[in-house]
Amino acid sequence: MAKQRFDIQSWTYPLIKRLSSHRPPSRLPITISSKRLYVLPTRFGVFFGLLILIMLLGSLNYNNNMALMLTFLLGAFMLLIPIYTVRNLSGLEITHIDAKPVFSGDAAQFVITLRNGHHTARPLIWARHQQLTTVTSLPADATGHLMVAIDSQKRGWMHFERSRLYTTYPVGLFTAWAWLTPDVRCLVYPAPETGAPTLPSGHHDSTGRPEQRGDEEWSGLRDYQPGDPSRLMAWKVVARTGQLTSKVFSDHHNQEIVLDYHNLPIQGVEARLSRLCSWIIDANERGLHYALQLPDQQIQSGHGDAHMHHCLQALAEFQSGAAG
């Protein structure tokens, strides 16, 4: 941290951040205009400026014309560099930002798609938020990706947090940056309960009684067929024989599970949602059919990834007020 104190950016960022915080989130696609750009020398830039100043004083003092010439050349060079730096960012388009849903507590990974519609390449564009920094180089008329990871705190829709898109191209003397405030959000599922009781099985029982898991469900192996979910792969067999083999369970579709919010032996909205979440994942992993009942919503029985995400989204969006 001591090092950071000398960094011009460390005290200007918060200031500029505050000054520019009135900007509402913008809709995609965003084109970074020069109005949104800020430029400052980097630490090396400040050092380089001081060096030029020393050179200037020395050569003026000794009235050494060649030394002055070189000093002025470096000075002129330094004055022109911000133009290159700004140019590298200005006009860059952010076409879309995607984030897959995450469980609460995990980092949401926003993948930013950038498009360089210009005739010149844009080398070394960086994105930074919290601990993660990503970098990409865009050739002329090309697209590229950057990523911003944001730790999720609670379930629901999490908005993209203001992140910095910056570049120090071409020589690291200046940094130009834009604050990225797109109107983008990521769905955060409740965190699955750790150590949750096993999934209730059977139509009538959803009280959390240990599930009847036994050999009778296991029906054997068969050759892998395209479309078999990977969780059904018999990896041990594959490893032994080299043949792609799938496990077959019997009677899955006969078992109907209803996961009911009201029928949980625990208190608290979040705790219940967590348990439901954990059960949904469990059920999906085992390929079971299940239905979800929430106070404000009912989801018909189904199975598969799409069904799971549908249910998890319902959990994420669940309003505690509706439990009423």
Partner: peptide, 23 residues
């Protein structure tokens, strides 16, 4: 990048105030 700096350098060289006597 350096060549782009030449006109500016020349201007600075010609017009930047010089010292009468060393400091």
């Amino acid at each position: 990048m350096l060549l782009y700096g030449i006109p500016l350098m020349a201007t600075l060289f010609l017009f930047f105030p010089r010292l009468e006597s060393p400091m």
